[in-house]
Structure formats: C-alpha cells, structure tokens
Design a protein around this nucleic acid. Structure first.
Ligand code: FES
Ligand code: FES
Lengths: 152, 152
DNA sequence: TTCCTTAAAGAGGTTTTTGTCCGAATTATA
DNA sequence: TATAATTCGGACAAAAACCTCTTTAAGGAA
C-alpha cells in the first residue's frame, strides 16, 4: 500500500541490526534467516545501504554488517528516501507530476494532510526507538515461522 | 506512494466520465487523450470496470463507456478494492502477513491511525463529488500538456 | 602460508506490472 | 447491404521489481 518490498526489507534489517550489540557485525545470513527474507537479495540491499553510509561492512571471518557510528538515530524517512527515491514525499496520489496547492487534483486537499501525517511519522521514527520496542518482546519484526503457526 | 498506476488511471477515468453527461457514452480514445494515458491500456482497465459493474459499455457507432445507473455515488474505496485487490486495507506497512494489535510490528500503533484515516478518506470520496469539484475548474485531472507548460 | 569465511560485484533469471497490437464482434447510419 | 466506428479478447512486448548464481576480493585463524 505504501512501501516497496525492498523498502520493507531494508527497514526490517536496519531495525534488526539496531537491536544487536553495536560494533558487533551481524551476518547477512543471520538477518535473512531471522526475517525470513531471500538472503542474496537482502545482501544487495545492505550493500546499497553501506554505500549510502548507513551501515559499515566487514569481510572475512567475524565479518558482517553493523550500523555506522551515530546512525542509531537515523529516521525512517532517511532510509525511505534512499530506497524509494528522492521523490518519495512529492507524489500526487493520482499520479500528477506536480503536487502543490496551485496544481491541485480533486483529491489534493483531502490527501495532503494525510500525506503530511505519513511524512511526519516517518521523520519521527528512529531506528533506535524501533529497536528498543522490538527488544521489549512486544512487537514482531517478521512473520512467525510456519512451524509456529497454528494449523490451518 | 500509495496507488498503482492502474488504480490511478481507473480513478482518473471514472471521475472524467462522471463529469460528462450521464447516459452519453464517452469514447475510450477521448478519455485517453484527455488524461494523457495509453489508450490501449486504459481500454483494458475500463473493460475490467465494466465486468465489475461500475461502467456500461456500448460497441459500434455512438459507442463508448458511461457510468452504470446509480454508480455516481461509488466511493473510491469501492474502486480501489477492485484495482488494488481485496486486501488493500489489510496490509502491514512492514509487509507482515497479519496486521492486528495482537501481531503488531514495531510500527503498527503509529501506522494504524494513519491507515484508518486513509481508509476513511477513500470511503468518504465519491465519484459524484470529485466530478463536481473538477467541473468548478479549480482542479486538474491530468498534467497540463507539454505545450502549455512553461519553458524549462 | 593455507584454508575458511564473509561481503562485493556483476551477470542473469523470474515474476509482476505496464503497455501494444491485431483480428473479431457489434452497432449506427448511409 | 456496405461501411465506418467502436468495444472485446487474446496474444504479445517492454519495463520494472524482485530474486539467484557465480566469481572475486578481503580478512581472520590454524
Ligand atoms: S495534486 Fe494530487 S495529491 Fe496533490
Ligand atoms: S502489523 Fe505492521 S502495521 Fe500492523
């Protein structure tokens, strides 16, 4: 409805990494297993997040990915601007090229406050806080494994 | 950010048709020209909306599409449930299979009110009203043609 | 040094979404 | 009846999103 799969994987992975001891690299394989996400694809996403400075990566034994120093406070908006592209916040819900009060589509003035709420929400959520929430054990970062699901 | 291109085309087209005299079929070609969208693709979308009962279609001379009687009051939610699928309102922003208070992801309780706002908004907007808004001339259904754009 | 482990890089595959084309069916009108 | 205009239906094509595989480079440990 709002985020591409790539963005979802990126956010999930970053939150997961943020729950782990800082400075201790986390294996791509472990993240993929934990989130139940395709490992080779996730690796690409993490590599891209490295290039953009959110993560540090280390090769070889004891290698893996960890949050770059200071990046605990990264907002989801910062992440989404990378994964969804710089126009993430600029789109018209009907697909018009411009979305301004002057070029409004018939949904614009209803949509604008909702869109602003989404933007504010994404600006307001930081990896740190989301990681803490997960650490309370009250929230899920991934679907339960099939084995743990009630029989259908 | 929220709607597929197909949904955007569908909504634009339905609003446009709703601005035209009821009972007077509108040509697919005219809609496509007016909205500046691919005609052959739009035709598929309109055919699908016919099958789902939102539109009536007529072949041959004086043919075209028009809103089925009584469908002026169709809400955008009704349209989107067809174009985006019946799970449109059910998705978790992180992609989890379930989105309930009991299976909450770390974004759930922030996201839920925004999502509900979107749903309420879509339930609250009807083709009729959007068409009237367009008819005031204050709102755009499509981008201005390149010819009318200021030189870049 | 040699081996093992890991990420990096690039090529390529699959699936979904978006878009095109064409022939057949249908209808108004001359 | 012939013709032109239109939707319908199916196959196809292109692009984007999603995902895999293989090889290479780098780092740690025996
Ligand atoms: S112009 Fe369409 S949402 Fe702003
Ligand atoms: S569980 Fe993720 S948004 Fe509801």
């Amino acid at each position: 409805m709002v985020l591409s799969r790539t963005s979802q994987y990126a956010v999930q992975a970053l939150i997961y990494i943020a729950t782990q001891a800082p400075g201790e690299p986390v294996l791509n394989r472990d993240i993929a297993d934990r989130l139940n996400v395709p490992a080779a694809y996730l690796a690409k996403i993490l590599q891209s997040l490295c290039k953009h400075g959110l993560l540090d990566s280390f090769r070889g034994r004891l290698g893996g990915f960890c949050l770059r120093d200071g990046m605990q406070k990264t907002s989801l908006m910062q992440v989404l601007l990378l994964t969804e592209g710089p126009d993430f916040t600029k789109s018209c819900i009907l697909g018009l090229k411009e979305c301004t009060d002057e070029t409004a589509c018939p949904m614009h003035f209803k949509w604008k406050p909702v869109k602003n709420k989404i933007i504010a929400m994404m600006n307001d959520m930081h990896l740190e806080d989301l990681a803490k929430a997960v650490q309370t054990g009250k929230y899920r970062l991934a679907d339960l494994p099939a084995a743990a699901m009630p029989v259908a």
